[in-house]
Simulated assay, not measured.
Amino acid sequence: MNFQTLKSKYTITVTATWLSFCLASPVMAEQTLQSPATEGQEFQQQIYTGTLDRVDAEQRQLVIDDELVEVSTVIKFNGANWSWERLASELDSGKRIKFELAPGSINSTPRIIAIDSEVD
């Protein structure tokens, strides 16, 4: 066996081991748009938690955990009704939020109707 063959086998073994750890290890994920926080009440109450990645004030859109969502014109923020224009200036990237989707919007582009910035 020459050095080149031994090096190739080592590289393949290390790569295969690394991939098996990456693919086989359990992943602990936050709730996503596909998994409602209230299990057993299928999409009756659509409340989720996530990290705000980006705020697009002009398009009324947020990116939460790499998912694009639309925002209603008037939205409930920490229990009070706010206009989108006022709310957009209050939201910061990197912030953890709890949010509620409009009923039926999970099958189309999700639309947020309420945000709570006080996440436990």
Rank of each mutant, 00 (worst) to 15 (best):
F3C: 01
T5Q: 01
L6W: 01
T15S: 10
A16F: 07
A16H: 11
L19K: 08
S20M: 13
S25D: 10
P26K: 04
V27R: 15
A29G: 14
E30F: 06
L33Y: 04
P36Q: 13
P36R: 06
T38Y: 15
E39G: 08
G40P: 05
Q44T: 09
I47M: 07
I47W: 07
Y48T: 08
T49W: 03
T49F: 12
T51N: 07
T51I: 15
D53W: 00
D53Q: 03
A57F: 00
Q59T: 15
Q59H: 12
Q61E: 14
D65M: 08
E67C: 04
L68G: 01
L68S: 03
V69C: 10
E70H: 09
V71P: 01
V71K: 00
V74A: 12
V74P: 00
V74F: 12
F77H: 06
N78L: 08
N78T: 02
G79R: 10
A80T: 15
N81P: 03
W82T: 12
R86Y: 09
L87F: 11
A88Q: 11
E90G: 03
E90L: 10
R96Q: 12
I97S: 03
K98I: 08
K98F: 01
E100L: 14
E100A: 15
L101S: 00
A102P: 00
P103T: 13
S108F: 14
I112L: 05
A114G: 05
A114F: 05
S117T: 12
S117V: 02
